[in-house]
Computed example of a mutant assay.
Amino acid sequence: MAYSIALVCLGNICRSPIAHVVLEDRLARAGLDDRVAVASSGTGGWHESEPMDRRAAAVLRDAGYDPSRHRARTFSTDWYAEHDLLLAMDHSNLADMVDQAPTVAEQARARLFREFDPLAAEGDDEVPDPWYGGTDGFRDVLAMIERTTDELVARLPELMRA
């Protein structure tokens, strides 16, 4: 693969796996799946090797995606060597990722996922954690991730040249 994107949330069972599944789908539709690899992880290791949250999987299935392949992984310093772009779901995840950057220069490769959301605004630039809420929160997160992913894929040619 020529380019690799990592998606990171707290436990890697809700937000980042949803984004992982959606991004792989959008890359395939754009004909970029042979040039861009996708992985996801969590900054906390509590759910290592577990499938995604059943509510996240249900929302994905209901929208026509396949959530079955996901197994939670834990973010580590090694992810900087393995991925070109590292996208955090919220500021806390981003801070944890930056703390693990091997060098100051590599910290810039860690960014917020919603930097690519055309509807994001100052103070509204995180993907909210739907864990403690109901199904509507997962649906809202999916919609946010879909529109953000569409913009990310549209901007990939410029990102891959950088």
Rank of each mutant, 00 (worst) to 15 (best):
L32A: 01
G123L: 04
V141P: 05
W79Q: 12
R55E: 09
L32V: 03
R155N: 09
H20D: 15
D96Y: 10
T149K: 01
R15V: 03
R111K: 13
V36F: 06
D96L: 10
D124G: 12
I145F: 06
E50V: 13
N12C: 10
P51L: 08
S40R: 04
E48Q: 14
L85E: 03
S76N: 08
M144H: 13
I18F: 10
V98H: 09
V22E: 03
P128C: 01
D117R: 01
L10N: 11
L7T: 07
L112G: 04
T149W: 05
F138G: 00
L142A: 01
L156H: 01
S16R: 04
E50D: 15
A2E: 15
S4F: 06
A108K: 14
R26C: 11
S68W: 10
V127H: 08
G42T: 02
R109H: 11
R35M: 11
L87P: 00
L152S: 00
E122W: 14
F138N: 02
D78V: 13
V153R: 02
L10P: 07
D117C: 02
W79V: 15
M1N: 12
M144Q: 14
E126Y: 13
P102G: 12
A88K: 02
A95T: 14
M1Q: 13
H20R: 09
T149M: 09
E82M: 09
R69C: 13
G133S: 10
L87N: 02
Q100M: 13
L119C: 12
M89R: 00
A6P: 04
V127S: 08
D66N: 05
A39N: 12
R54N: 14
L60D: 00
D53K: 03
R26D: 15
W46L: 12
E106A: 12
R71D: 09
V98F: 11
T74K: 10
